[in-house]
Write a protein that binds this DNA or RNA. Sequence first.
DNA 1: GCCCAGGCACTCA
DNA 2: TGAGTGCCTGGG
Length: 291
Amino acid sequence: MQMSESYFVPEVIHLEHTLENGQCFRWRKISEGHYLGVVHGMVLEAKQMEEGTLLTPMDEELFQRVFYDYFGFGRDLLRRQDALAQKDPWLKIAVDYCRGLSILKQDPWETLITFILSQNNHIPRIRSLVEKLAVLRGPKLTYRGNQLPDRQEEFYGFPTPSELENVTEEELRTLGFGYRAGYVVDAVQKVLAGEVDLEKVVGLPLHGGREELKRIKGVGNKVADCVLLFGYGFQEAFPVDVWVLRALERFYCKEIEEAGSREAFIKEYFGGEGGLAQQMLFHTLRNGMYP
DNA sequence: GCCCAGGCACTCA
DNA sequence: TGAGTGCCTGGG
């Protein structure tokens, strides 16, 4: 396999709105519409094209096997967003702003640790902590892209539970993880011991998956829902953080009252598009696009 | 230099 | 069942 080749995907997802909306932390912008990321144990470039998306290095087989799902291709994204825009003026504003924002389907383990680290943190700091963990125990990667030949840096994949087996809370605290250090260690131990089964979550209903993940220290409703949405692809998962809470209270106050509870409203109103709607409302509000 | 962030766990009513 | 509070830290 000649892995310095590029692969063109004839389907548009909006890379900026997709990779810079806080669902992932290992992509960074190289230039306008051009991103470099460490994903699934490889260094990958993604370029926004007018009629699609260019991935490097990539071939058909790898794309179909891993990255088709990862990026959320083939999910009829634009039509679904246009349908959401018809529901109310708030969603209309969101879709106008970030049409093409795709919900990634990332590695569940990486997503779990990443969102454990996200609590009480700004995005730049989350990125820095995830990077530190990768450098600490992750595999060193060889960069094989052909578009940034002068790039001289080292890349590390995200470490597996086994690779993190002997990591200690003290070690992580030294690196600046704070009280989350213990949460990471707990996740490693419970997953390695089989006490929490990340594979099993795939086949569970939303609520069951949530409860399984919440057995790990430091995982509450919000983190669990982020993992279910961004890591497992539960499209109805609707993580409620402070921003989304603000949006719900501002836009849907009356409807929530009528539905009886916030959870009931979310389920009835957004249904299987909860995740997509949530992330677009979040991204649009956070970027100050609501008057 | 200080503040506070995309939460969670624990306590107490 | 819900409100109040402590927790680590460094980027902005």
